[in-house]
């Protein structure tokens, strides 16, 4: 209760401030307040004219811009879908040597050596069988 009273009665805590007269010590140019309303009205009028002008031109351009944007987005979306469509790869049509070259160039040395060794052990014809193609595809999908 007493704390609340202290906060409300700030005059007790600040007697110097409390005793001061509330004089406005600032000065303004002569006649300032007589012209302030007019100047505010003028600025509003100027602002309204500017915004009205800027509204006339963009009305049709806004629609055109929106249509252009929609077209661009549509074309982009279509192209992206085309590009990202999963490519069907028929592994059996790829020559073995091409796969070996690809693996040599793109795999870590140890992996490439191991795969090439395996190819050597099993014989390259194995690549054209269904099971080996799947294994190869799984491996490539998993590690490349």
């Amino acid at each position: 209760m007493s704390k609340k009273v202290n906060i409300e009665n700030w005059q007790e805590k600040a007697p110097t401030l409390a005793q001061m007269e509330k004089i406005n010590p600032f000065v303004v140019p002569e006649g300032y307040f007589n012209t302030l309303s007019d100047r505010i009205h003028q600025r509003i009028a100027a602002d309204t004219k500017t915004s009205a002008k800027s509204r006339i031109i963009p009305m049709w351009t806004r629609y055109a811009a929106a249509a252009c944007l929609a077209c661009i987005l549509g074309i982009n979306l279509y192209l992206n879908l085309q590009q990202n469509a999963p490519a069907k790869v028929n592994w059996s049509e790829i020559p073995d040597q091409e796969i070996v070259t690809y693996l040599e160039m793109n795999l870590e040395d140890a992996d490439a050596a191991m795969i090439i060794d395996k190819l050597g052990e099993q014989g390259t014809p194995g690549l054209s069988t269904g099971a080996s193609e799947q294994e190869l595809e799984t491996y490539i999908n998993q590690y490349l």
Partner: peptide, 24 residues
């Protein structure tokens, strides 16, 4: 109406701003 509003509040708001920013 806006003229009346200005008449009523312009000085109060000016002095509030003036005390805050000091410069006229």
């Amino acid at each position: 109406a806006f003229g009346l509003l200005l008449h009523k509040y312009q000085q109060k708001i000016y002095w509030l701003c003036r005390r805050m920013v000091i410069d006229h």
